[in-house]
Simulated assay, not measured.
Amino acid sequence: MFGTDVRAAIDAPRLRLYDRQRVALEPPIGDGVRHALVAMGHVLIEQPTVAFGGAQAIVRLRKGFAAGSDPRQDGMAVGY
């Protein structure tokens, strides 16, 4: 289910749905997606990157662990 590339999953661009119509997208999400959402009736709103939250994750693998921490926020993935 989970790959070893936890960091790539955390780094992926995010969206934030405010209600059935309003949605905010992080800047890396391209114009094609933005135009498609508007064509479906969504209203795009601008939000600072910190409004999308942050993430830290640790995934147990068959041999060891994989961890990642979101560069958008302070924090680190730590386990014991």
Score class of each variant (00 low, 15 high):
Met40Glu: 14
Pro13Leu: 09
Leu15Trp: 09
Val59Met: 02
Glu26Pro: 06
Lys63Ala: 14
Arg60Lys: 13
Pro48Thr: 13
Leu17Cys: 11
Tyr18Ser: 04
Gly54Ile: 00
Ala77Lys: 12
Leu37Asn: 07
Gln56Pro: 03
Gly68Ser: 10
Met1Asp: 08
Arg22Gly: 06
Ala12Trp: 03
Gln47Ser: 08
Gln47Glu: 14
Val23Ile: 15
Asp31Phe: 00
Val78Asn: 14
Asp74Glu: 07
Ala55Met: 12
Gly41Asn: 09
Arg14His: 07
Met1His: 09
His35Glu: 10
Glu46Gln: 07
Phe65Trp: 12
Asp5Leu: 08
Arg14Trp: 03
Gly75Trp: 02
Ala77Cys: 10
Thr4Ile: 07
Ile29Ala: 02
Pro27His: 02
Asp74Pro: 06
Gly41Ala: 11
Gln56Asp: 03
Val6Ala: 14
Gly54Pro: 00
Leu44Tyr: 00
Ala12Ser: 11
Met76Asp: 04
Leu17Tyr: 01
Gly30Thr: 04
Gly54Lys: 02
Gly79Cys: 04
Arg20Tyr: 11
Glu46Asn: 06
Asp5Arg: 12
Thr49Ser: 10
Val59Gly: 03
Thr49Trp: 04
Val78Asp: 13
Arg34Trp: 01
Gln47Pro: 02
Phe2Tyr: 11
Gly30Phe: 06
Met1Gln: 10
Ile29Asn: 01
Leu17Asn: 07
Gln73Ile: 13
Gln73Met: 14
Ile45Ala: 14
Met40His: 14
Ile45Glu: 15
Gln21Lys: 13
His35Asn: 07
Ala9Tyr: 05
Ala66Val: 01
Ala12Arg: 09
